[in-house]
Nucleic acid binder design. Structure first.
Length: 624
DNA sequence: ATAGGGTTAG
């Protein structure tokens, strides 16, 4: 418990807070707390209550945490007024430093302190409970509602419907709804939205049909547009509703335009965008996202430059849009522009997009800078950020660092996939396999991406039996249907081991048509084994199926060359010339002294090529 | 930052 401190005329708490370096953790706020005490903010319970209220409303997470700490350690309980309790609960429910557990805890403490909860307390704590996937806390709050004298209030019934609907328990929401003596628009809208979000269109239609026309308001119509837009083939129905509704607001327009954009129907989206009466940042951002998804990077950029204001989501859409379309350099330059010019703080989505651009470009120093930023700001690694970091370090060849991040971050399948895949592409097949078995021991369910990594690792490390075994585990134990990539890995594994007939068998027996990559993988195995008969058989099939391209010709001619069949080499070369194929050279990069050099395979004119080749040779020797 | 709530859009 805090002692009530001696008096001093209170000044502004935010002036005191601003004079300290930015608080990031509860510990950082300790000096601030002692200054609050000496300044007299905790002189009386009333003064303390005032301070807590102000801190709870702050946008600084550390200050909100401090408020809760002062509140709980001093037990400022002003008679039976729930006002202060509600402020504390709200500070843990909304905005920065949101913490559903703290909200439920405050609510429970409130009840045990003998303060009876009011309508605000219930609605706040129910909102906090809906973040928790388990129903436990929420069901208990429901019981407290029923025992209180507020059980019959329409407003609280609506809160309960929203709580159950948000958690996906629409049948329970329906039970509350059905037992209500009277309902208003909010009740109807909440229950409809609950069913809509769970794909229960049958219930949505039934409920909407039963609604009286005077109960249907703008929110109802917008909710209906939203759920038809999200359901398969529902766009025309959504448009019908949009045209039929009595009046439309900005949300209605944004919903219908976004529905078209999500389907890639950009001409419809753009037409409506042009005629809408007012546009906000969401309208612009949705249209940009649609163009990015459709691969129209230029049009997206044009809109981005044209729009009056951009927020964090706009920048995120642009940066991840560039990444999706393979424009990694543009993604990175926009990322830097965002920090320097837009004065916005990147969030986990921005950083994850930036990391994937960085790993594609191999810009390890940018990657380390992002990692430092994440560490400085204590951003959690359990989501996409951890995965992005592991992937970035692995793709840049820094496997030690990748493993370190892996150990420090969350343990979702995606984290495991990133590290297993990273080890695999660098030839550490044994380690990839070990991690795969560790995953099994932890009863973590591998997915199809996991197996691409594992099989890839077996292929690179020549682990034939283990590869075959994993393929069986995938089908039998995990009940996963192998995709064309998995069959490709198997062809690779068998081909490298010289089991060309088995590889051939995989290709002809797989349930989907083989692609060019898979044939070329076998063809290149034929070249390595010097198996002309199989090589010709494969090449023949390739040419017949029309997926034959230049690299297949090159492989075939190499097979002949390897066996000294120079006549056949000439024949293939002739075929290549006849098709007037243009050689698309292989391209790679390497980093020397912090500068990334792009170079083209076979391009002797590159000033660094000699150096690069000797370096690559060194790397290869070290790996052996 | 300056006193609280239930339904709709990225």
């Amino acid at each position: 418990m805090l002692a009530w401190a001696s008096c001093h005329p209170p000044t502004d708490p935010f002036l005191l807070a601003n004079n300290l370096p930015r608080c990031r953790t509860l510990r950082d706020t300790d000096p601030l707390l002692s200054r609050f005490i000496t300044a007299g903010f905790l002189r009386t319970p009333a003064a303390a209550a005032d301070l807590i209220l102000r801190l709870c409303a702050s946008l600084d997470p550390a200050l909100r945490l401090l408020a809760r700490r002062i509140f709980f350690s001093s037990m400022v309980v002003p008679c039976n007024d729930p006002f202060l309790w509600n402020a504390v609960i709200k500070s843990s429910t909304h905005g920065p430093a949101a913490d559903p557990c703290a909200a439920s805890l405050a609510f429970a403490l409130m009840l045990s302190a003998g303060v009876s909860a009011d309508r605000f307390s219930f609605s706040l704590v129910l909102k906090a409970c809906s973040q928790d996937p388990s129903l436990h806390a929420g069901l208990q709050v429901h019981a407290v509602v029923l025992k209180s004298n507020l059980a019959t209030e329409l407003y609280l019934q609506n809160c309960l419907i929203a709580f159950y609907a948000r958690g996906g328990h629409c049948e329970l929401a329906r039970r509350v709804f059905d037992r209500m003596p009277q309902r208003d628009s909010v009740s109807w809208n909440s229950i409809i939205d609950g069913f809509a979000k769970n794909g229960r269109m049958d219930a949505v239609e039934e409920l909407f049909g039963r609604m009286k026309d005077r109960d249907r308001n703008l929110v109802t119509w917008n909710t209906m547009i939203c759920c038809y837009a999200a359901s398969l083939g529902g766009i025309n129905h959504a448009r019908e509703l949009f045209d039929r509704m009595p009046q439309r607001d900005l949300i209605s327009w944004n919903l219908i335009i976004d529905a078209y954009a999500k389907l890639g129907r950009m001409e419809n989206a753009a037409a409506l965008f042009k005629i809408m009466p007012a546009k906000d940042v969401i309208s612009w951002t949705n249209l940009i996202a649609g163009y990015m998804e459709a691969g129209e990077v230029g049009l997206a950029r044009q809109l981005f430059d044209e729009m009056p204001e951009r927020d964090l989501i706009t920048w995120n859409v642009m940066i991840s849009g560039y990444v999706k379309n393979g424009s990694f350099a543009q993604a990175l330059s926009l990322f830097h522009e965002m920090k320097t010019q837009a004065n916005l703080t990147p969030d986990a989505i921005t950083l994850a997009a930036a990391l994937s651009a960085i790993s594609e470009l191999g810009r390890i120093y940018d990657g380390i800078a992002v990692h430092d930023y994440i560490k400085r700001n204590r951003l959690p690694l359990y989501g996409k950020l951890g995965v992005g970091l592991i992937d970035m370090y692995a793709k840049c060849g820094k496997l030690e660092e990748a493993l370190q991040v892996f150990e420090a971050s969350g343990n979702t399948v995606d984290h495991w996939n990133a590290i297993i895949g990273g080890l695999a592409i660098h030839g550490y097949g044994k380690q990839a396999l070990e991690l795969f078995h560790a995953m099994e021991r932890l009863l973590l369910k591998p997915d199809d991406i996991t197996f691409i990594g594992v099989l890839n690792g077996c292929s690179h490390a020549g682990l034939v039996d283990q590869g075959l075994k994993c393929f069986e585990i995938m089908k039998k134990d995990c009940k996963l249907e192998p995709k064309v990539q998995h069959y490709g890995c198997m062809v690779d594994i068998l081909g490298r081991a010289g089991r060309l007939d088995d590889a051939w068998k995989i290709i002809v027996e797989m349930p989907m048509p083989p692609n060019g990559v898979i044939w070329r993988s076998l063809l290149s195995a034929c070249r390595k084994q010097g198996d002309i008969t199989m090589g010709q058989k494969v090449a023949g099939t390739l040419i017949q199926s029309g997926v034959c391209d230049l690299s297949s010709h090159v492989l075939l001619s190499n097979i002949y060359a390897g066996s000294g069949l120079w006549g056949d080499v000439r024949r293939v070369r002739m075929m290549m010339r006849q098709r007037e194929s243009i050689k698309i050279p292989g391209c790679s990069w390497i980093e020397l002294g912090g500068v990334v050099h792009e170079f083209v395979v076979g391009d002797i004119s590159h000033p660094l090529s000699t150096e690069i080749y000797s370096l690559l040779e060194l790397v290869r020797l070290q790996l052996v």
